[in-house]
């Protein structure tokens, strides 16, 4: 019974994510963060960052990746099926209807006005989602430096239209993480040796 209920919650929550994600990509981070990290506490901030890392470094829409992953983690295969279905259902229905009246829809001025407002809010939502996640992270020198550098780098890439995919920035971060780990384990071994002598 509990199982069915969780499947239903997964479906419903990702339905909500699909219904209220405007602008794609990181826009849904705000809603998923609130639903699964803040409210249900099914994921910690670190785990959620890992979900995003996996989503970023595998092909496909980030939201589909996240839905599949969170669903699987919570309820196995069926969890991922229900989450993904919930996520894409609003799009399917809404876009199918729009495709029938595309020309008329795009001319509706009130629709345009509403969307202009929504775009401004989406900017705020993305900013606050990223900052909120960062505030929950331990403030080590590496974390703070990597956060600031990757923020600035992404802004520069867009402003100067450099051809540098975001996935490379992620890979560099991972490489630095491994390098720090190698150095610190080597240093620890060294110290242990020194202690024995």
């Amino acid at each position: 019974m509990n199982k069915l209920k969780e499947l239903f919650i997964l479906f419903l929550t990702f339905f909500k994510v699909g219904l209220f994600t405007f602008g794609g990509g990181y826009a849904m981070v705000a809603i998923i963060e609130r639903e699964f990290v803040e409210r249900k506490k099914w994921l910690s901030a670190e785990e959620f960052a890992d979900v995003l890392t996996i989503a970023e470094s595998t092909p496909g829409p980030i939201s589909v990746n996240s839905a599949t992953y969170i669903g699987y983690k919570r309820r196995g295969f069926f969890g991922s099926v229900f989450s993904t279905l919930g996520l894409i259902l609003p799009s399917l229905v809404i876009i199918f209807c729009i495709s029938l009246f595309f020309d008329e829809f795009i001319e509706l001025v009130w629709v345009k006005y509403a969307f202009t407002g929504i775009r401004a809010a989406v900017v705020f939502l993305i900013l606050s989602a990223g900052i909120k996640l960062f505030l929950k992270l331990k403030k080590t020198v590496y974390n703070v430096a990597a956060f600031i550098i990757s923020t600035l780098l992404l802004v520069a890439i867009t402003l100067f239209s450099w051809n540098f995919p975001a996935v490379f920035i992620i890979l560099i971060g991972g490489a630095v993480g491994i390098a720090i780990w190698l150095i610190s384990t080597a240093a620890r071994k060294d110290r242990n040796k020194g202690g024995k002598e």
Partner: peptide, 28 residues
Amino acid sequence: PVNAFLVGVRPVVMGLIVGTGITLFLTV
């Protein structure tokens, strides 16, 4: 090593989100 990789990536992912937000603020 996998764990070290993820530790290295976490702040980067968060930076990319904020960077996207700043970029959108500038463009939109």
